[in-house]
Design a protein around this nucleic acid. Structure first.
Length: 263
DNA sequence: TAGGCCATCTGGTCCT
DNA sequence: AGGACCAGATGGCCTA
């Protein structure tokens, strides 16, 4: 939680004196969070692609042996399933040829069998390529999530946030920062008072929460980040302000407990 | 051991 | 036609 307060504190130390830099920080935050979505594939993805391309070359060069050149369990499993029929069609023992058939007919039938096998191999190639793209796409998505985690305040136990927790946390984090900026804009005089730093809502992130003080069900989900709690309140609704014009503690609790959810 | 989370495969759909 | 995106299925790993 110390990192949470320090991160908020960084914003707070700027906010009462200069609101604009904090707005810029919020804009930077949003850009920084979304930027990974546009980053190119990581090198690890290219490694996978290269490995798969070598497999494709194996498939192209030999129509029946490719299912055994791949050591990956998942791929070999699917490859064996898909490859066996094609090999049986193309093989001499596949039952396609008839004894005593005319050479031309043999040739035609053999050609058709080869086409079927080729079509099958082409389909298999497409499937493997699609699998590779899908794998890269998910890796890209996970990299973006990792980048998002890296810019979010961390918890002391260093528990890695799950995907859904990361998204909810980011949502609430941005919302809390936005609320802080909005309140600072509403109360410019008081916000510029250096003494108001101690009363700022973000400084209360480290305050001990009092269960029942807000509309949300309070829980200890912050320390055990794997079990977030949820709230039915809308994040876009105006936050309640105290007598000093600062966010009430429920705002902090919502942020703290990964609530509310994404709507 | 059940449940949660995750990676991967797969087929379908939409878009260029 | 090929790629991107999506959702369902499946199996592995980890934890309470």
């Amino acid at each position: 939680m110390s990192q949470v307060s320090s991160t908020f504190g960084d914003c707070l130390h700027i906010q009462p004196i200069l609101v604009e830099p904090c707005n810029a920080l919020a804009v930077f935050l949003v850009i920084h969070l979304t930027a990974p979505l546009f980053l190119p594939f990581p090198d690890s993805s290219y490694q996978a692609t290269t490995a798969m391309e070598s497999i494709y070359s194996d498939i192209d060069s030999s129509s029946c042996d490719y299912s055994y050149t791949h050591t990956d369990d998942e791929d070999s499993r699917s490859s064996i399933q898909a490859a066996s029929p094609a090999c049986s069609v193309g093989s001499p023992s596949g039952g396609v040829q008839e004894a005593g058939a005319e050479p031309q007919q043999k040739k035609r039938r053999r050609g058709r069998a080869r086409n079927e096998a080729t079509v099958h191999v082409v389909k298999k190639n497409r499937r493997l390529k699609a699998n590779d793209r899908e794998r890269n796409r998910m890796h890209n998505l996970n990299d973006a999530l990792d980048t998002l985690r890296s810019v979010l305040p961390a918890f002391p136990d260093d528990t890695k946030l799950t995907k859904i927790e990361t998204l909810r946390f980011a949502h609430n984090y941005i919302w809390a920062l936005s609320e802080t900026i909005r309140i600072a804009d509403q109360r410019p005089n008081k916000a510029r008072d250096p003494s108001s730093l101690l009363l700022s809502p973000l400084a209360r992130v480290t305050d001990a929460p009092s269960p029942g003080s807000d509309a949300c069900s309070w829980s200890s989900g912050a320390s055990s980040s794997s079990s977030p709690s949820y709230c039915t309140s809308n994040p876009s609704s105006p936050a309640a302000l105290d007598d000093y014009g600062y966010l009430q503690t429920d705002v902090v609790y919502r942020y703290h407990n990964f609530v509310p959810t994404i709507y």
